[in-house]
């Protein structure tokens, strides 16, 4: 996994509450292989009308937001369906960090599993950042070492679970770590068989 330390790039405001994972990628695109890339489906039905034409005024498609890699949005981003495709759409589009007051739990876990930083800020700071972007700011700098977002004259703190922070900073993959615990897993399974004999499903 690609480590995240400091990222500087184009920031885009998304002044919406509760952008759920059904918005991040509508279900009908999820039959496709990841190899095809999911970036084109990001926020598809908010960005494009029924004919596929861009909806005028959608922030992500404004010329000054071209190549956006940081999104700043309102509370409860990524709520809903556990579809990791929502994170794939963001990552494949080029997004490396989403700044919001709160995130759906499963989304945030999926994000970290894919090297995407879910940076939690206060609602007041989210509004200040969005206002600055709407007033014309375009670039932001996200520092995971210091847990701060800098944007124009603003420099605000963000929160992230320390375990997630360490994983992102180091680009650690979980599964190799787990496989190194094989002996502990085997010991658990052996003890569990007598402790909870009912936990094994019966054959019908």
């Amino acid at each position: 996994m690609r480590p995240f330390t400091i990222h500087e790039g184009v920031a885009c405001p998304l002044p919406l509450t509760g952008v759920d994972t059904d918005q991040l990628i509508p279900a009908r695109f999820m039959k496709r292989s990841r190899a095809e890339g999911y970036g084109g489906y990001l926020l598809h039905d908010l960005r494009f009308d029924e004919t596929g034409a861009p909806r005028p005024g959608f922030p992500l498609d404004a010329p000054q937001r071209a190549g956006a890699s940081i999104l700043v949005t309102r509370r409860n981003f990524g709520a809903g369906s556990s579809r990791e495709a929502a994170v794939y759409a963001l990552v494949d589009f080029g997004v490396r960090c989403v700044v919001a007051p709160s995130f759906g739990d499963i989304f945030a876990q999926n994000a970290v599993n894919n090297g995407l930083l879910p940076a939690r800020v206060s609602e007041a700071d989210a509004e200040r950042l969005i206002a600055a972007l709407l007033a014309g700011e375009t670039r932001a700098r996200v520092d995971l070492e210091t847990c701060r977002v800098a944007l124009g004259a603003l420099d605000v703190a963000f929160a992230i679970d320390p375990v997630w922070r360490a994983r992102l900073l180091n680009g650690w993959e979980d599964v190799d770590l787990t496989l190194s615990r094989a002996a502990e897993i085997a010991a658990f399974v052996a003890a569990d068989r007598t402790r909870r004999p009912w936990a094994i499903p019966q054959r019908p």
Binding site: S82, R83, E84, A85, V87, I106, F107, Q109, N110, N113, N114, D161, V163, D174, V175, L177, T178, L179, I185
Partner: peptide, 21 residues
């Protein structure tokens, strides 16, 4: 009982475990 994304599904497939807070 809780929902998980594809990376965690893969982790469970391979190890029958998950790291959780």
């Amino acid at each position: 009982a809780f929902g998980i994304g594809a990376s965690d599904v893969a982790h469970v497939l391979e190890t029958q475990t998950l790291w959780q807070k």
